[in-house]
Design a protein around this nucleic acid. Structure first.
Lengths: 253, 253
DNA sequence: CGCATATGGTTCATATATTGAACCCATGCT
DNA sequence: AGCATGGGTTCAATATATGAACCATATGCG
């Protein structure tokens, strides 16, 4: 792997921890030599991507990503555009609605609007969504290129519940159904008792950039209800995309 | 320079542009060979730090920094902590107040609260603040280690206005005054007609992490007024730091 | 038209940055 | 004292990055 790749992987790993690691921890977690880990950390620190606590000598994510994120959002205010739609959908469906974005080979939750009900599904911002076990992943993948699909299928599909689809051929069939239907349905693929439906948010070229999903407790979501949600979610996804790309064309000539 | 450094510099340059560059532009801007630029871009793209528009083939900042920034902010909610104080100060001073953070060797504006008055100073979020020509920079540097000061002084001090201090020995004197006084004063160092005062926000170890500043039109800010602002700004900086580090000790032991 | 120029992208011998085992130096524990 | 652990460093060996030259395609333009 390239050095840059290693550095970025390090950054990613660091971001996934919930404790601040020391040098040795970093090396172990990233499967790097201590010297290598250190060089990468120093380099990342120079640029503000990590910072070392001057007292504990532990490392943490630095402030540079915050600046980059601001720039990104200023130019591409995805969240700003999408959040009102997510809220709206959460309001009408009365279920938890969450938004995810594809970045670095994975789909991650970037916003959640909770259901107003007491019995509701909880989704945390930042969660990675496996492609084969979530409605969001399914929706994203169903509208992605063949290559993306093959990449996902090149690894074995991890089982999370008894309902998780792990058979590639069954999974392919679900992708086809999703693509035709316009939205995906996941039946307890990641967690028992939770069903959800999702649709991809696509760029004008048709390339998905993320997904929006409604997650409901199984007890409340009949197939009919879920299909209704599916239609709403697909509609919302389309409207987000239109709003996001529609008015503000990336300043090309 | 290390490859990682090049990649991160590329990312930084990319973030400073206000147009989406193509491969050749990137190579030129970063002073890299086209092939090198491409490899770095590909690597950065793999991890979501840049993305290439599938239609125009131009490159832009990707979504990964947004995720990292969320993680960073979740653990270190600097903005969330600081913004109320900034608002408060803007309210009482009736002048533009801005907050900056040190990252990647530079001080950048991360939040601005505008003065409610019609005649006011405008500061853009994301602006880099030269150490020698702004109150924020002066404040930051005055409380930094000797090494940081020498690093800054190792480059020649660029002049922005007729008032910009470019003489290192004068600058050192100002640093000493600032350190003693507890806040800095900049007299039109970056822009004619603008005076400002700033104080560093420091970690418990005394290491500055950023600065908070009040910027006012010269016409309105007598020396007395400015000194009053300076005291407020220093007080606010101290309170931000206490709030930021005080309650939530970095989970050490 | 057809030539010139610009762009995105690729190749491969060469040069250079990266690697990691072994090392040093604190600190803390027994 | 003796040992263990963690941060940090060194330097010869080697994997990795580099860039001049190369395509392919697109866009002027006389």
């Amino acid at each position: 792997m390239s050095t840059v790749g290693k550095a970025l992987t390090l950054l990613d790993r660091l971001s996934q921890l919930n404790t601040e690691p020391g040098l040795t921890d970093v090396a172990r977690i990233c499967d790097l030599d201590k010297a290598t880990a250190r060089r990468l950390l120093v380099e990342l620190e120079k640029h503000g991507f990590v910072e070392q606590d001057p007292e504990t000598r532990k490392y943490r994510i630095g402030a540079a990503p915050v600046r980059l994120a601001r720039v990104r959002e200023a130019r591409y205010p995805f969240l700003r555009v999408a959040i009102p739609f997510v809220k709206d959908l959460a309001g009408t469906s009365e279920e938890t609605v969450h938004l995810s974005e594809f970045a670095g080979g994975q789909l991650s939750t970037i916003h959640v609007e909770d259901s107003p009900r007491a019995h509701r599904v909880i989704v945390d911002v930042g969660t990675h969504l496996p492609f084969h076990a979530t409605a969001s992943g399914l929706a994203y993948l169903a509208f992605s290129g063949r290559q993306q699909i093959e990449t996902v299928l090149s690894h074995s599909l991890k089982s999370f519940t008894d309902y998780t689809v792990t058979d590639p051929s069954v999974f392919r069939k679900m992708l086809a159904e999703t693509a035709e239907r316009g939205f995906s349905i996941s039946n307890q693929g990641l967690e028992i008792g939770v069903v959800s439906t999702a649709a991809p948010i696509c760029s004008p070229s048709g390339q998905p950039i993320g997904a929006i999903a409604i997650a409901a407790p199984l007890a409340r979501a009949s197939v009919a209800v879920l299909k209704g949600f599916g239609a709403s979610v697909a509609d919302t996804a389309k409207r987000i995309s239109e709003k996001y790309y529609g008015s503000e064309r990336p300043s090309g000539t």
